[in-house]
Every structure is written in C-alpha cells, then in structure tokens.
Design a binder for these strands. Structure first.
Length: 376
RNA sequence: GCGGAUGUAGCUCAGUUGGCAGAGCACCUGGUUGUGGCCCAGGGGGUCGUGGGUUCAAUCCCCAUCAUUCGCC
C-alpha cells in the first residue's frame, strides 16, 4: 500500500511537548495525534465501514480476547484476516486481552506463564500466554499488536505492583521473542505499567524501552483513580517514553483527557466513551457534553452541534434525536455514534492543525473551557 | 334484566387482621474511560372510582351509586 516500511514513525512538528507525526503501517499511514474508535468484536458498534470512512476514521481497534473466543482467530485468518473479514482496509490495532483479564477479573488467574481465564460467553477455560496472544493477533493480521500485560486496579499495594511490573516486562520480552521481526507487517507495541507509583512507572519504562518495540503504550490509567492522579502520572510517564516511537495512552478518554495527553506528548488514544455514550444519549459538542434525552430538547429544532458538519448534525434536529433516543431506536445508536466519533476525530484533527501552527496551548484551553467538569 | 368480578401513581398491579400508601415499568436528573448493546445512583408523582354510614381513626368494614368486565337469560 505504501513504499514506506511499516513501523516508520516521523515527527513533523513539535509544539511544547505535543507532537505532529505520521505512523506507517501495512495498511497505510496514520496521522498523529489520532483517536482510534473501538470495535471490540470487529465492528465499531452501530456504524458501518462507510460511516467510518465518512467520519474520517484512520484506524480502529479490535480485541484479541473477544475475537479469539468468537468467532475464533483462525476462522478470521481464513477470511483475509480482520481486514478482509470486517471489510475495513485501513489500519487496525488489536488490544491484547490484558485489560479483559483486569475487567473480567473474577473469571481469571494470573500465572507466570500467562492468564488463565474463563470465557464470559460459555464459561470454558482458556490460557493466554504472551506467545499465544501474539499468534492470535497475527492470525487476525493486526497492523499494531499489543503485548499481553497485567493491568492492576487502583489501590493495588506497592509490593504487588512491583511484582506486576516485573511480570509485565517478562511477558513483553517473551512477546517480542515470539515475533522478532520489528517493523514487519504486524507491528508490536509494549505496554508500560506501574500502577499509581511514579517510581514504578519509571521502572517499567526503563525495563521496556531499551528493547526494540514499534511503539510504547501507557496502560493502567483511567481505572477509577481521581483525575489529578491520572494527570500527574501521565505527565510523569509520557516524556520518559522514546521520542522516536509512537506513544499510546490506552483507554483514554474524555476530550479534556485527550488534549491533556497530547500536551504531554502522547500520539494515540482509544476509548469506548464516544460510542458507548452515544448509545446512551450522552453527546459531545463544541459547547460541552449534553444528554440528548433531556426534556429541554423535546422541541429544539436546531442541530445537535452547530459547529459540526457530520451527517447527523447536517440532517436532524435535536428534537428528533431526542425522540429516537427515547424510543430506543437502533438509528439513534448509529446517528449518535456518527456524531460522537466525528467530534473525537475532529478534536484530534484540530489538535494536529494547532500543533502545526504552534497554537496547541490555546487550542487545549478552548477544549477545556467547553468541558469545565472534565478536567482536574 | 339477573348473578359474579374488578376500580389504588401515566401503565400493570401489590397492600393494609382498620393506624403517615408500595413495587415494576414509564417519566425527570446525574454517572459511564484498552465495550458482556448495558448497568448504576438520585428524584417527581396517588381525594386509594364517587357519595353516605360505622369508628378515636376508613383505601380496608357497611349501604348506595357510577364505570369496566365476565357469565346467564
């Protein structure tokens, strides 16, 4: 698709710590900073690939854990990988299943060799080793594979977190060894952890960043901690990551979280917030977050967000969108998701333009002003 | 016309051996951060069909009446 080798990451401009860049993958380039819509089971919920193309999505997420359980990574592999199977020919990043080991924690056991877990679908028992997780993601033909990691809960004690960081490092190195071809078709990102201890965050970065990964993620944030703790650790950790590789803040976040991440030098984000909230009627606009179910919109004939040019905002009134949401119509899921994803992608596109213009600080301040409750 | 049943929140219904009236859903307001198409939290709302009677006290017991509904003629 491109002559530039996958894994090539070029930084074009810097504004403070914020970076403007391009990451090349086997399915084309990604402009950073970027937001990646989440499509856990190989589908961004409620929206089809042509919607995503119209929205301007450049890369989407899939999930190793979910796709392994159903329909099975080998079945997907026989159908052209996730790209062929899901009819999405742009880049795909797959999460490793490490987070599911955390969020479905009552169903799993962490062992040295990997994560033993029970399926949330049928209770069957499975073992995810670092090597197995790489193999699954190669079957899916993911453009960016994530290593298996251990995500610890907020409040996890120091001594356990120490052991967890060490385990996550050993798993990352095993993952790399299972697929040593750096900058090959399937890129491999390491995930730094360290819970809520700055020195352990530093240690995790030191242990991983000397090795040859295609990018580095910050995992384990936004798991219920107060905002200021998350922002403190973000500011501490992001600048420690290698400047010549993409940096990915996993599972984050709100518009304010994202511009805060960019301000600290993060290049990639993913979050279920725009799609999940869309299904529940919480919509992001240039004037802040609104709940479209509110009665005050029942006869509001104006567009959802006058500053937005998405299909939903061009076509429908707030009154109609409120009606669809109250009626539980499937179309509400789609129209709201189209809008929220457009907002998040416009947000990062605006950030890229601001970085290029050297005006990112002012841009971030404008976003924060629209979301007074979302910051620290 | 005769006999029975039922009338309690917007809806479907609990309930009180007579003592400040309840649930689910709906409605209103929050929340949702590497997604189990959800879930969680809070809130407003009732002359207990109507009119009498008994009682310290009636949504509850008695009488009448209206409405709905079933059966029989």
């Amino acid at each position: 698709m491109s002559d530039i080798p996958p894994g090539t990451f070029t930084v074009h401009a810097v504004d403070g710590k914020a970076r403007l860049g391009t990451l090349h993958t086997a399915h084309g380039p990604v402009q950073t900073p970027i937001f990646m819509p989440v499509g856990t089971v190989g589908s961004v919920k409620a929206v089809a690939p042509d919607d995503l193309a119209n929205i301007g999505a450049e890369i989407i997420l899939g999930n190793t854990y979910h796709l392994y359980l159903r329909p099975g990574d080998e079945l997907v592999g026989r159908r052209g990988g996730l790209h062929g199977f899901a009819a999405w020919d742009k880049p795909i990043l797959t999460d490793s299943g490490g987070f599911q080991a955390f969020s479905l924690s009552e169903l799993r056991k962490i062992r040295e060799n990997g994560v033993e877990f029970r399926s949330h679908l049928d209770g069957s028992k499975h073992l995810f080793t670092p090597e197995k997780v790489v193999e699954i993601q190669r079957n899916l033909n993911s453009d960016i594979m994530m290593v298996l990691d251990e995500c610890v809960a907020y409040g996890t004690p120091y001594d356990y977190t120490v052991k967890s960081v060490e385990l996550t490092t050993r798993w990352a190195l095993r993952s790399r060894a299972a697929y040593p071809e750096c900058s090959a078709g399937n890129l491999l990102f390491a995930i730094t952890q360290g819970g809520f201890f700055a020195d352990l965050r530093s240690r995790s970065v030191e242990q991983l960043c000397g090795h040859d990964f295609d990018g580095f993620a910050i995992g384990g944030l936004s798991v219920g901690e107060p905002k200021n703790e998350m922002y403190d650790l973000l500011a501490h950790t992001a600048p420690l990551l290698p400047a010549d590789k993409p940096r990915y803040l996993m599972g984050v976040g709100t518009p304010v979280d994202i511009v805060t991440g960019i301000a600290n030098g993060v290049d990639m984000f993913d979050c279920v917030l725009p799609t999940r909230n869309a299904r529940n009627g919480t919509l992001y606009t240039s004037q802040g977050k609104i709940n479209i179910k509110r009665k005050e919109y029942s006869e509001d004939d104006g567009p959802l967000d006058p500053a937005c040019s998405c299909y939903t905002c061009r076509t429908f009134s707030r009154a109609y969108l409120r009606h669809l949401q109250h009626s539980g119509e499937v179309s509400a899921f789609r129209l709201n998701s189209v809008h929220n994803l457009t907002y998040f992608l416009d947000l990062v596109r605006g950030a890229r333009e601001a970085i290029r213009a050297g005006e990112f600080a002012a841009y971030a301040a404008r976003v924060a002003a629209a979301y007074p409750d979302d910051g620290v």
